[in-house]
Simulated assay, not measured.
Amino acid sequence: MQPRTTEDGTTVYVSETDGDKGSEGPFLVAYESRDAGRRYGWFCTNCESFDNAMDSMGRIKCNRCGNFRKPTEWDAAHE
């Protein structure tokens, strides 16, 4: 895992293997500690940002570059 520093100065650890494909580049999981005991959030590899949002259906969108992961959950009521 690679240590990275967030905008507020917190050190988090980004997995090099745990993540999901995005439209512009992968989103990798970031953890609060090297032992991966607790997730911190997502790291956008396209712009190297932690400024991402996830909705209840599993969509991830980077607020900086627009990198996007499709939803992992589908609700048939919306089709």
Rank of each mutant, 00 (worst) to 15 (best):
Q2I: 12
Q2D: 13
Q2Y: 10
P3G: 08
P3I: 09
E7P: 06
D8K: 12
D8E: 14
T10F: 08
T10G: 02
T11Q: 15
T11P: 11
V12K: 02
Y13L: 06
E16R: 13
D18N: 14
D18V: 14
D18Q: 15
G19N: 13
K21Y: 15
K21P: 02
G22Q: 01
G25L: 02
G25C: 07
F27S: 01
R34N: 10
R34M: 11
D35P: 05
R39S: 12
Y40K: 01
Y40H: 15
W42E: 03
W42Q: 06
W42G: 02
C44L: 07
T45E: 14
T45P: 12
C47S: 08
E48I: 00
S49A: 07
D51M: 04
N52E: 09
N52V: 14
A53G: 11
M54H: 00
D55L: 03
D55F: 04
M57K: 08
R59W: 02
R59S: 11
I60N: 03
C62N: 03
N63E: 10
C65R: 04
N67W: 01
N67K: 03
F68G: 00
F68D: 08
P71D: 00
T72N: 04
E73H: 05
D75H: 08
H78C: 01
E79D: 06
E79S: 04
